[in-house]
């Protein structure tokens, strides 16, 4: 590596820190995220997202377009599917638990937590959720196993 290149990088690093520093509010938000830590839960990782960046998955996007996501808790064998529709400045979520059954769902988002229950077919609906990061914590009725939580995802 050129010594002069290293010097230039150092100069640019110092300049960027002054011209375009990391906003305080982003640091604050990042630190505050820790309050959402859950203990003893199983993660359902994002397995499919119709808005994923894989070009083969690309379709027509835009407001009013429904987005499909699927989260898999592999060890538990659960799948949580979401259908997300933007409505004005918020989103409506239709969910499906697989295997089907009654469950309590905590929809965690920037505006707080909303509690909903799924019906015996595993379906649930949440209306007018604030846009932004969302994670769903799911516990089954009469089940002592740890809760399943979906990966935080921007909806």
């Amino acid at each position: 590596m050129d010594h002069s290149d290293d010097k230039l990088i150092q100069e640019l690093r110092s300049l960027a820190a002054r011209a375009d520093p990391t906003p305080e509010r982003m640091l604050r938000a990042a630190k505050a995220s820790y309050a959402w830590r859950t203990i003893d839960s199983e993660l359902a990782e994002l397995a499919y997202d119709s808005a994923g960046h894989d070009p083969s998955l690309a379709g027509v996007r835009g407001p009013g377009t429904t987005r499909m996501l699927s989260f898999a808790a592999v060890e538990r064998g659960w799948t949580i599917e979401l259908e997300v529709t933007p409505v004005a400045d918020s989103i409506d979520i239709l969910g499906q638990l697989i295997p089907a059954g009654h469950a309590l769902l905590e929809v965690r988002h920037g505006g707080g937590v909303e509690l909903v229950e799924s019906d015996e077919l595993g379906r649930f609906a949440v209306k007018r959720v604030q846009e932004g990061p969302v994670s769903i914590r799911c516990t089954r009725a009469g089940d002592d196993a740890p809760a399943v939580i979906t990966d935080w995802t921007t909806l």
Partner: peptide, 14 residues
């Protein structure tokens, strides 16, 4: 950008 930032850190928490 704020949503991306928040999502990255929330996801890391878990």
């Amino acid at each position: 950008a704020e949503d991306v930032n928040q999502t990255v850190w929330l996801r890391l928490v878990e």
